[in-house]
């Protein structure tokens, strides 16, 4: 690095070549700056369009449950809940499976099985979300009816589970959560794999040499190294799940104003509401929908900023320890 910089300063270039050099440098700096420009523009241009709805609703926009365009009531509370609720359901399913797969691939699987597993993840990651959504609404929702009815009738009289598995609908928070979980598993798995791979070989061997079983080795040597990174990976998954639009729009059932713990109830999330209502929106409603998008943007940015710094720090720390 230092030699490079040193050489860089040597003035042994002819005039025109030096000018070309400078120009290229500025062009590439400009390209790098575009990231900042886009993020800044998103924040500024979109926030400036939310004026009408905030003049109309004020801060109640965030605390109002109802979303009733005919009455000009625009509240994002139920939408924020729906977004969080589906994302939590998705993580509830996806996190154990992702950690299981990542451990399997990094600690257990024979070498010949590792590549096929990576291919499976690649394929899952590249299937468009609209295809998952279509499959969810036209195939999964139809076949899962029986299971939902069974869940409802079985747990109906139980204290907490009774309200979690309330009146069933095939397009519901749970259906959306299941589809979302399939979509975030590749993301969480690949990060978890990266994190697990930073465990120093020497510590794993030390654990085994002390007579630890394979599971005890994972708990004693792999997990302590990966805690921070795993938290970050799960948070990145959360951010993706909250921002996912099309698959959720097709499967969540589009019911407004739902503030419920019933996973089998239809609901709505911020992104899916935007796609559903954009078409016939007047100026105030468009402004309200953009305000929903800005809210979503801010939430996902905060989650991503925290998650990215957690992951980077954890990977850096364990690399430093090696």
């Amino acid at each position: 690095m230092t030699t490079e910089q040193h050489i860089d300063e040597l003035p042994n270039l002819s005039g025109s070549s030096q000018r070309a050099d400078k120009a290229f440098r500025w062009v590439s700096i400009g390209a790098g700056l575009i990231v900042l420009v886009i993020l800044g523009l998103i924040t500024y241009t979109m926030a400036s369009r939310t004026g009408p709805v905030f003049r109309h609703m004020g801060f109640r926009f965030f605390t109002e449950r109802r979303w009733a365009p005919p009455k000009e009531i625009y509240g994002a509370l139920a939408l924020m809940w729906g977004t969080l609720f589906t994302a939590i359901i998705a993580l509830f399913i996806a996190v154990p499976i992702s950690i299981g797969i990542a451990l399997f691939v990094t600690q257990v699987a024979p070498a010949w099985l590792r590549k096929p597993m990576v291919y499976v993840m690649d394929l899952l990651a590249v299937i468009p979300s609209v295809v998952f959504g279509m499959w969810g609404v036209l195939v999964l929702a139809r076949h899962i009816k029986g299971l939902y009815k069974w869940l409802h009738t079985t747990f109906d009289s139980w204290p907490i589970l009774g309200s979690i598995f309330g009146k069933p609908q095939t397009r519901s928070f749970l259906t959306a959560g299941i589809i979302l979980s399939i979509m975030v598993i590749p993301i969480i798995t690949s990060l978890a794999r990266e994190v697990f791979e930073t465990t120093p070989q020497s510590e794993k061997e030390a654990a085994l040499a002390l007579g630890a079983t394979r599971w005890e080795m994972i708990r004693g040597a792999v997990f302590p190294h990966s805690k921070g990174g795993l938290v970050g990976a799960v948070m990145l998954g959360l951010g993706r799940a909250m921002g996912e639009t099309i698959a959720v729009a097709l499967t969540i059932g589009s019911a407004l104003g739902q503030l419920t713990f019933n996973v089998l109830a239809p609901g709505n999330s911020m992104p899916s509401l935007i796609t559903a209502e954009w078409g016939e929106a007047d100026a105030l409603k468009k402004s309200a929908l953009i305000a929903v998008a800005v809210t979503l943007f801010v939430i996902t940015i905060i989650i991503n900023v925290i998650a990215t710094s957690v992951v980077q720090r954890s990977i850096k720390r364990s690399r430093g320890a090696v």
Partner: peptide
């Protein structure tokens, strides 16, 4: 930025 929702 890779995590910015596509709808945004």
């Amino acid at each position: 930025m890779t995590g910015v929702p596509s709808i945004v």
